[in-house]
């Protein structure tokens, strides 16, 4: 897989968390594979479910927090409250266990999930339907290295940025993108629910490209909706 031989990761045992979309998931990566994982669809309630879920999968993997090399967490873009809940848990575990906390872009995690499920030679476009403001979108190479920064786009504007040739699209914004691309070019939509998964986040930290690792701070892409006092 990408990068692991030329650039071995120091993180062999990784706990990964994701609450960035309409699901809550956690996974433990150990000895080159997922040792335990859980994922539950949910629009809200992450603050209630996440820490017990972590306890369950840690027990399922048969390890303690001291056995971890790192904690990984999706940092966005995504649902603001969910991002902060997963980050709060990751930072708390990192602090108490004395382990580094590594951020992974939500769009990067989606791209990794698509690439792991179906190898491709072309670009991967990860798109999240942000409901209010269009799409959160980012492009990656077939090696999963980011080719653009994450940004907010209309479907039409993002389609216009895509290169010629085959593009694999992943994420819950894929239908909107496919619609915008109707006239002219063809894009392939990756199978599956299009939600980020903690297992892919763990894989990215343990075996993925170095460029995927980010600081553990939220990527909101949008300012808070407020008006200045007059």
């Amino acid at each position: 897989m990408a990068g692991n031989e030329s650039n071995p990761s120091p993180f062999r045992v990784v706990l990964a968390l994701d609450c960035s979309a309409a699901a809550c998931s956690a996974a433990v990566w150990r000895q080159g594979a997922i040792a335990a994982s859980q994922s539950r669809p949910m629009a809200r309630g992450h603050a209630e479910v996440l820490v017990p879920m972590i306890e369950t999968i840690m027990a399922g993997a048969g390890i303690g927090y001291a056995d971890l090399d790192a904690v990984a967490v999706t940092v966005g873009p995504g649902a603001f409250t969910g991002l902060r809940i997963a980050l709060a848990a990751a930072l708390g575990i990192g602090l108490a266990a004395g382990r580094p906390v590594i951020g992974i872009g939500t769009l990067q995690a989606l791209a990794a999930g698509a690439r792991l499920a179906a190898p491709t030679d072309g670009e991967i476009a990860a798109v999240i339907d942000n409901k209010r403001a269009g799409l959160y979108a980012q492009r990656f190479g077939p090696d999963l290295a980011p080719r653009t920064e994450p940004g907010v786009f209309s479907p039409e504007a993002f389609v216009a940025t895509l290169p010629d040739g085959p593009v694999l699209v992943v994420g819950d914004g894929a239908p909107a993108l496919a619609l915008a691309a109707m006239s002219g070019r063809t894009i392939t939509v990756a199978p599956g629910p299009g939600l980020p998964d903690a297992g892919d986040v763990a894989w990215l930290v343990a075996e993925g490209p170095m460029a995927a690792r980010l600081p553990p701070t939220p990527i909101y892409l949008q300012a808070p909706a407020v008006t200045l006092a007059t």
Binding site: H46, T81, I85, G92, A96, A97
Partner: peptide, 19 residues
Amino acid sequence: LIGGLAVGLTMGKALAAVS
């Protein structure tokens, strides 16, 4: 405020879980 409560509550739980 729910957004702030979720941060402190979750980080506190994580500290309690590990320790």
